[in-house]
């Protein structure tokens, strides 16, 4: 084990413990790894596989299914412009073309300074602010070309570090809760619930139990 920082390794272990089956922690762990390095490196995948007790190919197979998990390096800011139908009606395609011109990269590309990765994204549920864009999964819209230029300028000059977190969607999500109630105890409780229910039903239907 060498990829996760000690602090993140602790978090990873907590995440693994949240599920009846440890593989369920796969996506959260991938987010955690991206938060640490920006993308999901092979090294990270190998370590996640070890934590989940599965093969790296299985982690890769799952991770590569999801658009947010990047196995290649990405920029500091992941800029996603929506061109789905509501944004399209509001000029989303034109905004994407503009973004491409301004950043000097095609969708999927990363600027040479490693600052921005531009993506064409599907609906991000901000259709009332069409056309909209997301930066590290924080939303901006409606965006005219000028608004977009200002946004880029603000990002470049660190004026949005408060509202736009570093890349890694879970970077500000921390579970701060007491240890989980063990499932065995839960199941004891549920057994009692089931018995109480049976007793109630029997009380409602006093005949039901006696009938053959």
């Amino acid at each position: 084990m060498s990829f996760f920082t000690p602090e993140n390794l602790e978090k990873a272990k907590v995440l693994v413990g949240l599920y009846p089956d440890r593989r369920s922690a796969l996506i959260p762990l991938c987010h955690l790894a991206q938060g640490q390095r920006g993308h999901l490196s092979h090294e990270a995948i190998e370590e996640i596989a070890e934590l989940l007790e599965i093969q790296p190919a299985e982690v890769m197979g799952t991770a590569s299914f999801y658009d947010m998990l990047h196995t290649e390096d990405v920029g500091k800011y992941l800029v996603g412009v929506c061109t789905n139908v509501a944004c399209l009606l509001g000029g989303g395609q034109e905004l994407l073309d503009h973004a491409s011109d301004v950043l000097g990269v095609s969708p999927g590309g990363t600027t040479e300074d490693g600052m921005f990765t531009l993506e064409e994204v599907e609906c991000v549920a901000h259709c009332d602010k069409a056309p909209c864009a997301q930066v590290n999964y924080r939303y901006f819209g409606p965006l005219g070309n000028g608004d977009f230029d200002t946004l880029v300028d603000d990002l470049k000059n660190d004026r949005l570090s408060e509202s736009v977190p570093p890349h890694g969607v879970l970077s500000r999500v921390f579970r701060d809760a007491p240890p989980m109630v063990p499932l065995e105890i839960i199941h004891q409780e549920r057994r009692k619930m089931d018995e109480a229910k049976k007793a109630r039903l029997a009380a409602q239907n006093p005949d039901a139990g006696g009938k053959q």
Binding site: I45, I54, Q55, P56, A57, M60, G61, F65, Y66
Partner: peptide
């Protein structure tokens, strides 16, 4: 031996190894 898996999604799904 889950050493081969589907990678990617949709019509870009491929079988491959890590």
């Amino acid at each position: 031996d889950a050493l081969i898996e589907f990678f990617g999604r949709g019509d870009h799904t491929e079988v491959n190894v890590f």
